[in-house]
Design a protein around this nucleic acid. Structure first.
Lengths: 252, 252
DNA sequence: CCAATAGTGTCTCTTAGACATTATTAG
DNA sequence: CTAATAATGTCTAAGAGACACTATTGG
């Protein structure tokens, strides 16, 4: 309406506090590689609900804090400030997902290089590493439950709906690994094509054809050869490449 | 983390009721086809802020209401109960996206058949139809701004960050149209292969190769031929197909 | 017959997988 | 020299675009 009232006067009169509001949190799937397996970093809960179970690191969103900033803050506070590629995953809003109160959580995928993963574990001793095992064999079409295991092979039961979040994280990553640039977030600045292929194989859980993989990656135009080579091998050293980011990016 | 206190303990003790909470809303991109163009349904704002501009239909999430239920309720209340395929898009949480107060909004994509689209327009007279024009020509790599136009060609400026939401909706739909089953949400129960191709071409904004399109769709195993044919044509009638949904589905 | 569209056959081009071969390093 | 892996060449198979051809309807 083209009322004569000024916008400032309208804003001053507006009363936002009329309904009970859900709490809003962010939860991070801190994902890296442990050997040839995808792995995540978890915190063991010591209180009800779900005491003893393992949960994704998370935190509430401040009233003056953007979602991405909240995710970055949780990364700083709970992962020892490790650098990571952050990407929004999905928002979980079932009413009873937390029995204490209504909490809507915006899940983020945080991809860590091997160095960042190790650094986070070293700087935040409460974190526990869990390898993510996709319950293959089950062909229940669309639903792929995941199991998280400690390094000794023991199952790490997850709290709340966090198993669902982890499953979605891995599914999303697998889906966009080939056509997008996310794979490079798991690699150091300089890497060989074999390392790149190892990352893809670990995430996808499959073996890939070497010549075809090289051709595809090189044809994508993402790779800058450096002319330098790895050292310390007892065999022919591979060339080191650098990732050349595309001009810009938006969520898709 | 300088404190000796465990993170889990901190989380458990933290009471967000002591802090101001952002409001949580859902916004719907009601998307259908108008002729050979993607189109959306909007509400013109009559108040500050952004008075006169057009906004996505939305509403606040109730304290005992799941996110999906809130989206379904908004669909009922503001789109005359039209049936639609609902799918979560992305969550927008910039601090200043609404000048009145902090509102985090979970955007949903609602896909309407041509009949549902017309029915919504008829039952909810406040809705206005806008065709979505992707600002092609701009090859700004990743960022594809959209323009929304009324049927008379006049520009419909969008409120808040809703242009960004619409742009993401179209980008997401385009991205998954070919490999997923979403395209069928825009078609009636019985349809011809030509209609299916028209939907894909309208969303993608490109022409597709007919034999290749038919082969691909039939090879996907999504289509059940009915043995029936369209009527009322002055040329050879096409066979009518039915969509055969896959066993289950999850967000990806 | 013609006009218009449905539906198909075939050719080519691109891309991926499979497999073999050459290249380079340490020892 | 051998062992191990990097990097590449080549063949084949699958899928998409291009294009022409046949099929079926109304008039």
């Amino acid at each position: 309406m083209s009322s004569a009232e000024s916008e400032a006067a309208f804003l001053a009169r507006y009363d936002p506090a009329d309904y009970a509001r859900p709490a809003v949190a962010v939860d991070l799937v801190l994902l890296g590689l442990s050997g040839a397996r995808p792995a995540i970093l978890l915190l063991q809960r010591d209180r009800h609900p779900h005491a003893g179970r393992h949960a994704l690191p998370g935190g509430f969103v401040g009233i003056d804090e953007a979602l991405e900033d909240a995710a970055a803050r949780v990364l700083r506070e709970k992962a020892g400030g490790a650098r990571a590629h952050l990407e929004q995953l999905y928002t979980f809003g079932a009413v009873e997902r937390d029995p204490r109160m209504r909490i809507i959580t915006v899940a983020y995928l945080a991809l860590l290089t091997e160095a960042a993963f190790a650094e986070a574990l070293a700087r935040a001793p409460a974190l526990r590493l869990g390898t993510v095992v996709t319950s293959a064999g089950e062909e229940s079409a669309g639903e792929e439950p995941v199991t998280v295991r400690a390094t000794d092979g023991a199952a790490l039961p997850l709290a709340f709906d966090h198993a669902e979040i982890v499953a979605l994280a891995l599914r999303r990553l697998r889906g966009k690994l080939d056509y997008s640039e996310v794979g490079f977030a798991l690699l150091p600045e300089l890497f060989t094509l074999r390392q790149l292929q190892d990352v893809h194989e670990a995430i996808l859980g499959t073996r890939l054809n070497k010549p075809a993989f090289r051709r595809r990656m090189l044809d994508r135009g993402w790779l800058d050869p450096t002319g330098r080579f790895e050292t310390g091998t007892s065999y022919r050293p591979a060339e080191l490449y650098r990732f050349r980011p595309a001009p810009s990016q938006s969520p898709s």
